[in-house]
Design a binder for these strands. Structure first.
Lengths: 400, 400
DNA sequence: GGCAATAATTTACGACCAAAATCAAACTTG
DNA sequence: CAAGTTTGATTTTGGTCGTAAATTATTGCC
């Protein structure tokens, strides 16, 4: 407890710098409420440890009088971390420096979708080694690894209760990976990591309470409350996709009925479409979906009604989230352009009509079309957070 | 910022004492992580200020050797606060001491249900004066007042956006009351205050994340995240009752369709029942409900089916909460015994079947049948929290 | 070139916490 | 029943830390 106060100060200063990107000491003092003297002392310490660096005089100095302010920023070269995402038959890797800039990437195609945990370890390692060598680095340049997986994951304990990519249940994957790779590993539900990507690099910067929704083969949700990912009592991510929108409704992959996912996920759309359309000539799910979207755009009433219902169900589920959470901001984050219909103006309108009316603006809804690497960058953000925590604790330990 | 650390220590020590009820200094030191020396110094300060007191040797001293431990507790007489709840045509008042023990109560019947804000002020005052004089005290014995109202309330700003008891919208009620009564006033949504009552006095003691649901004429929800009431971005409580459980479903009082409330609230049950039953001989809502419950218990199929549907809708809504929040504990809190059917084993079973399955126990569901004063005690708990905060800040101010 | 303005650092000092020592109040034991 | 033991609480002591004030640094302005 002896260095408690200093510790808190360091954390606060460091995270303020990271959130700001670039910031001068004066502003740091003003924002954190810490006195300039202490800011000097803390930043000196962080510079000495190599975690932050000066970037030279601020841009806007010529507008001011007096001694020019010197901006500080996180020192990108301080640490390199990897973010990985296990998707359907692929492992995507992003190498990212301490500032969050991408310094390398790789993608490993897999021959199937489900693996035993023991089979997965060498695959992760291979993907990682590939990314590292392509970037001209070695494995020991990495300070930590973040991993995102679909399914229910207990981030605190690093246990994967269930994942579509794993054929086993209750796998202590984090422990296994840490033993195998010999570096800190952080695992979380992929939707949570997208939320973290938004918080670190996207629309969620500086927003205290927001919600991120992703639509892929399933529907994922990440909740940020008070600047932190909310994980619930059992450490599992929020299961928006299995929110019930219809009593005894459509059958879901999870075995229950009426889940939102059973109305808006790709398999749900395709099984409806299959009633009237023969998709025999289309091989992949993506191709089938593509043709369904095109049919709707061409005016096919059946296809349109499928999307229409999915959109209304989605609006209802989303309105429920708003009614329960009253977030400041909702981010619809994803890469699938063919899902545009879900983000259409009518859907957003449906949400607005379904939330409790007060004389204040409803939460802002933003649509964020990320590229393929979003997931992996989210995982990297999680790794950065964990590695930064370790670094700050190291300083505290050395000082004591 | 100079007494930052001491301030945090004081807060921590005081809240630990309050949570524990009675606790010796050694245990305080162990629980808070603060050194015994500092605990001595802080507790001495709090005793000097009259906020806590020694209660003599602990009960279990004869089981131990060595110097007997001396328990500390919050000094009840330190402050008296009032909690008030505005319900349909009544104002309930609870006078509570700093420990939370009831020292007086009163109830004022009103001649109608909706008032202008300016009309409400003298009514609140009259109810308060009645309670105070009945308890043999004077108004200036009160250190603060907590008020609970149905509707959407911004607790931070003390604004009532809308309430069934107010004929105006966007009323700065807190400001008005503080000016009128000349003491600190704290206002919040009634469901949030029930959550606080559970946190302070009920099943929620020591639980970090839980959810409280109340069913009255509407359906209310209070969310506790990380030991704090979650209020959302716009400061309004969570609107569980207006969560949608059916696309284009039953019409709700709020004007929208498919709200949970439109299936489980008393008016919803009665309007269904009215289709086949003539309630002309029953005057009040409560009497009508009573006869409906009796009919169901007597085996009337129509009545049973009404309750059955309400129960299934309730289970669905509740399961959604679990899927989204994954709380440690859910408390169904209320006073209406006739709503037993909603808490029946089938309903709980329905919830368990509708949540995402992982290999861990589902959240515990507890039913808490409070008396009439629950709401007012919740309001009092809120007032205690606010008044304690003021007291601790005063100490910090004096010290500086 | 000196003055004003603003940023950052250094200095002086008091607040605070924890470890160690001490005091206090019981029980145990011979 | 007196000395020792055990455990709780307080006091003493040493050192860390943060802030205010003073100082130094660096530029713009006249």
């Amino acid at each position: 407890m002896v260095t408690d106060q200093r510790d808190a100060g360091r954390r606060l200063v460091f995270s303020t710098i990271r959130k700001a990107g670039r910031i001068a000491r004066v502003d740091l003092a003003r924002e954190t409420g810490i006195s300039p003297a202490t800011v000097t002392s803390i930043t000196a310490e962080l510079i000495r440890e190599g975690l932050i660096e000066e970037t030279g005089p601020s841009q806007d100095n010529d507008l001011r009088r007096g001694r020019p302010r010197v901006d500080l920023k996180v020192r990108g070269a301080a640490r390199i971390v990897a973010g990985m995402k296990l998707s359907h038959q692929t492992i995507a890797v992003a190498l990212v420096d301490f500032e969050g800039t991408l310094v390398g990437e790789a993608c490993l195609e897999l021959d199937r979708a489900r693996f035993k945990a023991a089979e997965l370890l060498p695959l992760f390692r291979r993907a990682l080694e590939h990314a590292v060598s392509t970037a001209g680095m070695t494995m020991d340049a990495l300070a930590g690894i973040g991993i995102g997986m679909a399914g229910t994951v207990d981030a605190a304990h690093g246990t994967v209760y269930w994942s579509p990519g794993l054929s086993e249940r209750n796998v202590p994957l984090r422990e296994m990976l840490m033993a195998d790779l010999d570096m800190p590993v952080f695992i979380d539900n992929d939707a949570n990591l997208v939320a973290m990507a938004e918080q670190y690099f996207g629309h969620g910067r500086g927003v205290s309470d927001f919600i991120v929704l992703t639509i892929e083969s399933g529907v994922g949700m990440g909740i940020v409350v008070n600047h932190e990912i909310y994980r619930g009592a059992r450490g599992c991510g929020a299961e928006f996709g299995h929110t019930k929108v219809q009593l005894d409704g459509a059958l879901c992959r999870c075995g229950q009925r009426g889940c939102l996912e059973a109305y808006v996920a790709d398999y749900a759309l395709l099984r409806e479409a299959a009633t009237t359309t023969d998709f025999a000539d289309r091989a992949t799910t993506a191709q089938k979906l593509q043709s369904l979207v095109e049919a709707a755009q061409a005016g096919d009433e059946t296809a349109k009604s499928i999307f229409d219902r999915a959109g209304r169900m989605f609006a209802m589920g989303l309105a429920n989230i708003v009614n329960i959470f009253d977030p400041e901001l909702i981010i619809l984050s994803g890469e699938r352009m063919q899902f545009d219909y879900l983000y259409a103006e009518d859907v957003l309108d449906g949400i607005r009509k379904s939330i409790v009316q007060i004389d204040m603006a409803p939460p802002e809804v933003r649509i964020h079309k990320w590229g393929d690497l979003m997931w992996a960058k989210g995982a990297a953000a999680y790794a950065i957070e964990g590695v930064a925590e370790i670094a700050l604790q190291d300083i505290a330990g050395n000082a004591a």
